[in-house]
Amino acid sequence: MAPPEILSLKGVRAGYGEVAVLHGIDLSLARGETLAVVGANGAGKSTLLRAIMGQIALTGGEIAFEGRTLARFPTYHRTRLGIGYAPEGRQLFPGMSVDENLEMGAARARPAERRKRIERMFGIFPKLAALRRTHCGYLSGGEQQMVAIARALMGEPRLLLLDEPSTGLAPRVVAELYASLASLLGTGLAVLVVEQNARAALRFAGRGVVFEDGRITAQGEAKALIADRRVVSAYVGGLATPEWAGAPTEG
C-alpha cells in the first residue's frame, strides 16, 4: 500500500559551498496533485528541484519519494524510481533528432515499448510529430521545451518536475505549452512546476507555493494565489509595501 504522499520534504536545507539557499523547506505532494512553486530570481526554486534530483547535496532535512528516503540515490537512479525531470536550460541533446532525444528518455525500455511511448508523446505534443527527424539544436524554444518535457515523460514517471518551462517563451507559446500539460493530468501523474511566470503556472496548478529567499512565504490554492498581492510583491515588489511607492526619490 503506497502512502498517499508521493513526495515529501522535511526541513530541507541545501546550498552551494558555504552559501545556503534553502532554509528548511517543508513541502509535500499527493499522488496526482499539481503544485506550482513561484517566486523571484534567486529565491531558491531551481535549487529545490536540484535537491530533489540529487544534483546538490542536502545540508539538512530529508526528501522522500513514495515513502522512501532518496538520500543515497544518485540522480539517474531517482529517475529510474519514477521521477521525471525537465531541468533548467532544457539540457537536450542538440546533435540528436527529436526521436532520438525521446528514445534516450526510455533507454532502458525494450525497443517496441520505446516506440509505443514515443507515439504517445506525439499524441500529447502533436507539433513534435512533424519534427521527429529534426535535430533539436534547430528547434524553436517552445518546441525544445516540449521535447524536454516529453523526454522526461518517456520514463513513465509518477512525478514530473519542471524547471521554468516558460523561460524565454512568448506568452502565446507558454499558453500552448501549459494546455498540452493539462492534457496529462487525471492519470495519477503528480506535477511540481517551478516557475517565474507565476500566472501561467498558478492557473495550471491546483496548489501554489511562494518562495522568497529560500523560504516559503505563502501557500494555498493556486487560483487564490493569483490574486494575492503577496505574490505580486514577491516578484515585482513594493505593491504590498507602499511606504516608498509614492515617496520622492532621494537626492
Binding site: 496533485e33 506568452p171 499558453a175 501549459y178 492557473r203 495550471f204 515585482v236 513594493g238 505593491l239
Partner: peptide
C-alpha cells in the same frame, strides 16, 4: 511608482492575464 503600477510591467513579470485558466485545480 508610475512604472510599478503599469499593467504592462506587471504582465511582463507575472504572465498575461487575458484568458481563462487553462486548467482548474487538479
Amino acid at each position: 511608482h508610475q512604472v510599478m503600477n503599469d499593467p504592462v510591467v506587471i504582465e511582463a513579470y507575472m504572465g498575461v492575464d487575458d484568458q481563462e485558466p487553462v486548467h482548474g485545480a487538479a
